[in-house]
């Protein structure tokens, strides 16, 4: 679900368009925009506190065969939450492994790639200290 949440509606729409047979589904809960209160910890690992809220959209769908899928995605993109829920439901059907291999894995790979690129740029700003020896010997 984390992969689907990070994907954004554009790649998910593309993946959905690529499905050979589109599933029939009903909304158990139509896409709904709301907020999540984000908590942090004092000193990074101590007592919890409320940092502030973030927007989130949630959606629940039920496929014709009864599989139920949930989408919880950061932001206000209703279509994103809907598609995330549909794929989550499809992951509970007999085409699970196909969805996993053809859609989820490539998305996860792309996300990992994006993180790596960022991390490589960050790594170039690592400081290497040279010790300056002062005075005699």
């Amino acid at each position: 679900m984390g992969v689907l949440a990070r994907a954004g509606s554009v790649p998910l729409e593309r993946s959905y368009a690529g499905l050979t047979c589109k599933p029939d589904y009903d909304f158990l809960r139509p896409p709904e925009v709301g907020m999540v209160m984000v908590q942090g910890r004092a000193d990074g690992n101590g007592k919890r506190f409320n940092l502030g809220e973030m927007t989130m959209t949630r959606c629940t769908v039920k496929l014709a065969d009864g599989a139920v899928g949930h989408g919880y995605v950061a932001g206000r993109d209703k279509r994103h939450a809907e598609l995330a829920a549909v794929f989550d439901a499809l992951l509970q059907t007999d085409i699970q492994s196909r969805i996993m291999n053809e859609i989820i894995r490539p998305l996860a790979e792309a996300q990992k790639q994006r993180r790596s690129e960022k991390a490589e740029k960050t790594a170039a700003t690592r400081v290497n200290f040279f010790t300056m020896v002062r005075g005699e010997d």
Partner: peptide, 17 residues
């Protein structure tokens, strides 16, 4: 907006720095 949930505390120790 309605508040739909409260997050688990974020783990800054596991940040992608």
């Amino acid at each position: 907006l309605p508040r739909l949930a409260v997050s688990s505390p974020i783990e800054t120790s596991e940040m992608n720095v």
